[in-house]
Design a protein around this nucleic acid. Structure first.
Length: 238
DNA sequence: GACCAGGCACATC
DNA sequence: GATGTGCATGGT
């Protein structure tokens, strides 16, 4: 029942907003950098930081590995928390360079949950950042959960508020891995590769999009594409 | 000027 | 386990 609502939400959101083509970024490495920089930060500020990195030819594993936290902090200043994030970024790049030779293909060949544990052991890489890297930079079938996911699905009666991050992640992964649903996706959507990866990417992006523009007010506004789900048993509008 | 944004680590109870 | 706090810029 919960899972059916999650699948229904995907269809409603996709119909409303269309494909989001996430993650913005030219290369897997840029996506990884963006994942760290966007922690608790609006994307437009991250864009400025990435633009600065590009302008100074510092957007590469070898450059970030080499320069100091202080120098890096100056460049990424617009992203906020810059002293913290400069060190976090260097910690991640150190891991990426020393463990995988800065080769994302080698990284992607590692078993997904093993790689997830490795990422989580890096200081400054938490669950959402690790999962963003896995899904969007490495095309691994991991669903990214965030504050919007909790906020929205709490109101829709899908979540109780007591679930842990990983419980929510697994619930969405399971709901969106339904074979009948994936066949529907394969038949009606234009994409390449693993259908789960495609759906996980779009679903998270749609949740963020929807969270930004709708359902911030109480009660749910009339244009909310999810109000139909809300009326199902358990939602706040029932 | 307050409030928030695509978190995370750490302290404290 | 739950809850509180620091980290900081830039847009509404």
């Amino acid at each position: 029942m919960k899972k059916e609502r999650i699948r229904k939400a995907f269809k409603l959101l996709f119909n409303k907003f269309g494909p989001q083509f996430w993650w913005p970024g030219d290369t897997p490495f840029e996506i990884m950098v963006g994942a760290v920089l966007t922690q608790q930060t609006a994307w437009r500020n991250v864009e400025k930081a990435i633009k600065n990195l590009k302008a100074k030819n510092k957007l590469s594993p070898s450059e970030i590995y080499r320069i100091s936290c202080a120098e890096l902090a100056e460049i990424i200043k617009p992203a906020g928390f810059y002293n913290l994030k400069a060190c976090r970024l260097k910690e991640f790049v150190k891991f990426f360079v020393e463990k995988y030779g800065a080769d994302e293909r080698k990284m992607a060949n590692t078993e997904t949950l093993k790689l997830r544990e490795e990422l989580l052991s890096v200081r400054g890489i938490g669950k959402e950042t690790a999962d963003s890297i896995l899904l969007y930079a490495l095309n691994k079938p991991i669903f990214v959960t965030d504050a919007y996911t909790k906020r929205i699905y709490l109101r829709l009666g899908v979540l109780s508020g007591r679930e842990t991050y990983d419980e929510i992640r697994k619930l969405f992964e399971s709901a969106l891995s339904d074979e009948e649903f994936l066949n529907y996706i394969r038949d009606n959507f234009d994409f390449e590769g693993d259908a789960r990866v495609y759906v996980f990417k779009e679903m998270h992006a749609l949740i963020v999009r929807e969270g930004k523009e709708f359902c911030k007010k109480k009660p749910l506004c009339a244009e909310c594409p999810l109000k139909e789900i809300c009326k199902m048993k358990g939602g706040e509008m029932q």
